[in-house]
Design a protein around this nucleic acid. Structure first.
Ligand SMILES: NC(=O)c1ccc[n+]([C@@H]2O[C@H](COP(=O)([O-])OP(=O)(O)OC[C@H]3O[C@@H](n4cnc5c(N)ncnc54)[C@H](O)[C@@H]3O)[C@@H](O)[C@H]2O)c1
Ligand SMILES: NC(=O)c1ccc[n+]([C@@H]2O[C@H](COP(=O)([O-])OP(=O)(O)OC[C@H]3O[C@@H](n4cnc5c(N)ncnc54)[C@H](O)[C@@H]3O)[C@@H](O)[C@H]2O)c1
Lengths: 287, 287
DNA sequence: CCATCTTTGTGCACACGTTCACAAACGCAT
DNA sequence: ATGCGTTTGTGAACGTGTGCACAAAGATGG
């Protein structure tokens, strides 16, 4: 069972219309763009095994999608297949790479070289697709000067110079959430126009700047939701009749909730109530 | 500018209909489920500042979505707001937590304690939402026995016992891609029914098992696509007329591509061609 | 050159997700 | 009670994404 991610997923920044972008810049739908890297990975594997051609059915299986979707996706790139035969692997690898902009080199800066920043710096799959770590940056003097994956960690003060001189347009943020917006602003100011954010914060950026986020915690919560659904899915108490009921009853319930007042009480008592989270209310509002 | 991720972001496993799951188990759409953690995070911040109520407009801004979407999302949970006032922060925190299944404890195992596994083990935001690291596992004898974030790294042989005795239903895979499917199979066999996969591989699982993936490389490639679009978006050569042309011309082009044969040549010559990636073909097929 | 078999490319219908816009509900002041 | 300003909850329109199913394109063999 695969869980649908409006892709957002996961990746993983939703909200297609948030910035009034028709999303379909030159005809390639977002959903297709998000799958191209998947196809590319599968094709690269085939290429390494010197497989000359592949059918939509085979490739779709390797990429974990359905073949009609794959064919439609490819149709946005042009007619690169041969009926009765399939797709030429090498040719397709190149076409997709070109479409994704991977035929050029993308220097990237990573800001915040803690646990996660270190792991990313050491990640080999980075360089394999045209992404090159231009610099590792941190604000902590104790971290600056050390090395990670053979690269020196440099101070944030050097950011502007690095971005400008190396034409960096992609930045990765792995700082604590409190520093993320500030770091983001500085990256944007320096000229970065694409940001991959690992900090659990909503980043605000000007038009023209893209943000994608990776949030472990969100992914786990989504899994928990489905897990809960699988295990049991009891009528689940809670969700009291009060809240579904129309008219003055609901209003009274709402009033009570607010009246229950300051924070902790409500948050603690509710989960504690065993027959359902609204027991406390039902006790006050019997009918 | 926010890039749309059919969020499936997100995040980050697309394909809602892949396993014939109507996706809308008890009425809550996947897209909404994926946003609930976002709302929850914003609400938690408000709660810590002792803000009693919040309007859809304010909360939407904090979560980075539009207010109509937020209201519709909440409407799937029930009528928890008060017209003219807004939503009770504490009450909403609890309702969303309950809906996501966060009122209970979720033990999690992490398999593959390398760079990334270490970072995840050290991640504090883990425990903060009811997720508890039940065990760290690895196959490498050199790693087993060491500690990460105060927890001992245990051998894969113990997996089955740990999953069974601690009722673990969520597993995180941070092994190299080559080992991921095998590890996945073993997790599933042991009883895990939700998997978060960091390895760049397509995992195959039986029905009833959920998989979500986090793939840094895919995120960067999507950013690169949009970055390329922003910078220039030149007619981009390539995409030769041959391939758009109908009839025998296209067929001939396809034939030539295949005939060009073994791998390297095609992949290398194409990007090298300066006037466009299909120049090599145009040279052979002038008209 | 024709028949047959395979596989692409796509029109179409439908499902899902987003946004608008507004009536109904509510708090509050008079 | 009544009226007024505010904000929710949702019907309806629209846009995006998915999957079916099939005609047309091409391969292949006679
Ligand atoms: N570790 C994980 O597995 C994990 C998982 C999911 C999300 N995250 C998120 O990723 C981020 C990093 O996590 P981590 O575990 O690596 O944290 P960390 O504390 O180990 O590292 C953070 C680094 O950022 C640096 N930093 C702080 N403020 C800075 C600033 N203003 N400018 C530049 N650098 C600054 C710190 O010096 C530190 O080196 C956090 O936001 C965390 O919530 C981490
Ligand atoms: N490091 C990153 O930032 C990063 C980013 C994106 C994706 N990834 C992916 O995450 C995975 C882990 O990355 P990493 O950098 O931590 O790699 P790593 O090599 O540092 O760690 C992998 C760990 O998995 C263990 N392992 C190998 N086979 C195993 C098996 N069959 N059972 C149990 N454990 C096994 C190894 O002993 C090792 O400790 C890789 O698939 C990588 O592609 C990593």
């Amino acid at each position: 069972m695969a869980i649908g991610r409006p892709s957002p997923s996961s990746s993983q920044t939703p909200d297609p219309g948030a910035a009034r972008r028709p999303s379909r810049a030159r005809g390639i739908p977002e959903a297709t763009v998000a799958r191209l890297p998947l196809y590319l990975r599968a094709l690269t594997a085939l290429s390494e095994r010197s497989v000359p051609t592949v059918s939509s059915e085979e490739l779709a299986a390797a990429a974990g999608v359905n073949s009609a979707k794959l064919r439609k996706d490819f149709s946005y790139l042009g007619s690169y297949g041969t009926r009765g035969v399939g797709y030429d692997v090498e040719y397709l690898v190149y076409q997709i790479s070109r479409e994704l902009g991977l035929t050029q080199d993308w220097p990237v800066v990573i800001v915040g070289i803690g646990n996660l920043g270190h792991a990313l710096a050491n990640y080999g799959g980075f360089a394999s697709r045209g992404f090159r770590v231009a610099a590792l940056l941190d604000a902590d003097p104790n971290v600056v000067g050390s090395t990670a994956a053979g690269l020196p960690v440099r101070h944030m003060d050097e950011l502007e110079e690095i971005v400008a001189s190396q034409h960096v347009s992609i930045g990765v943020i792995t700082t604590p959430p409190g520093a993320a917006q500030q770091v983001c602003d500085r990256l944007v100011e320096a000229g970065v126009t694409s940001i991959l954010n690992f900090a659990p914060t909503v980043l605000t950026v000007p038009d023209g700047v893209d943000v994608r986020k990776v949030d472990l915690s969100i992914e786990l919560q989504i899994l928990a939701f489905h897990e809960q659904r699988k295990a049991g899915d009891e009528p689940a108490a809670g969700d009291s009749v009060l809240d579904r009921a129309p008219g003055p009853v609901r209003a009274a319930a709402a009033k009570l909730r607010r009246a229950a007042g300051g924070k902790a009480e409500q948050a603690k008592t509710a989960p504690a109530a065993k027959g359902g989270p609204d027991d406390d209310l039902s006790a006050v509002m019997p009918a």
